[in-house]
């Protein structure tokens, strides 16, 4: 009897874990899968469900959100959002977004003016190591996802304004190629410790870097974590 009970418990656990893992991909009726969103033409209307991973600071009834589901990343630029709703967009929150797919300087996004509703569900996407994809076309497949890069060497650090208080541009080299990263001030400029850490990076330091794979005329990750080695 004990063996049967143990087997039942084990099977229940396996099934429940499988259910948890798959819940991120389950879409409501009328909602696109990531693959359908990815295949949708630019300037077409899209309806997606995704989980908030981070957002830039709310301003003027708009908010820019980095989101993900299990299959890919999304960038919701300047969604219509009240200040009260912005407070609800904590990491992991599931939202259904209706808007138009567009591309701006290479960044594929849901364009300004999208609307959203909050749904039940929670998911935080893990960072994917895409170091091996640097400099290759395949890197674009990870656009808007939380990604990590290992053993990157700092080659240049500059403030957008010439002094603290705005974005920080950080260039890293890897295997002789230079890549542009950015600490987006409205994403994490208010985290003084992190802002100071990135601002004080010096040429030659080797770091592991995490960030959302934003695109501006080429890959331009928005940095969220730096580990100096």
């Amino acid at each position: 009897m004990k063996k049967v009970l143990a087997l039942v418990c084990a099977l229940s656990l396996v099934f429940s874990l499988a259910a948890c893992g798959g819940s991120a991909d389950k879409k409501s009726a009328g909602v696109m899968t990531y693959a359908e969103y990815d295949a949708a033409a630019l300037d077409s209307e899209v309806v997606v469900e995704a989980y908030v991973q981070a957002h830039q600071s709310w301003w003027d009834n708009k908010i820019t959100v980095y989101a993900a589901d299990k299959d890919g990343g999304y960038f919701f630029y300047n969604m219509n959002c009240s200040e009260a709703d912005a407070a609800k967009l904590t990491p992991g929150t599931k939202i259904k977004v209706t808007g138009y797919k567009s591309e701006w300087a290479g960044e594929v996004e849901v364009a300004e003016g999208a609307t959203f509703e909050i749904e039940d569900g929670n998911y935080i996407a893990p960072a994917k190591d895409v170091t091996a994809s640097l400099g290759k076309d395949e890197l674009k497949n990870y656009q808007n996802q939380l990604v990590s890069f290992k053993d990157m060497t700092v080659s240049a650090v500059s403030y957008k304004n010439g002094e603290p208080g705005d974005d920080i541009y950080v260039n890293f080299t890897k295997d002789g190629q230079e890549y542009a990263f950015c600490l987006e001030y409205y994403l994490n400029g208010s985290d003084a410790d992190f802002y100071n850490l990135v601002g004080s990076l010096t040429e030659g330091q080797v770091c592991d870097v995490e960030g959302y794979l934003y695109w501006y005329e080429g890959p331009n990750p928005h940095i969220t974590k730096v580990t100096v080695k």
Partner: peptide, 12 residues
């Protein structure tokens, strides 16, 4: 001096 790169932010 406090620097901005956006008139909208100064205005706000």
């Amino acid at each position: 001096m406090r620097l901005y790169t956006d008139y909208g932010r100064i205005y706000n």
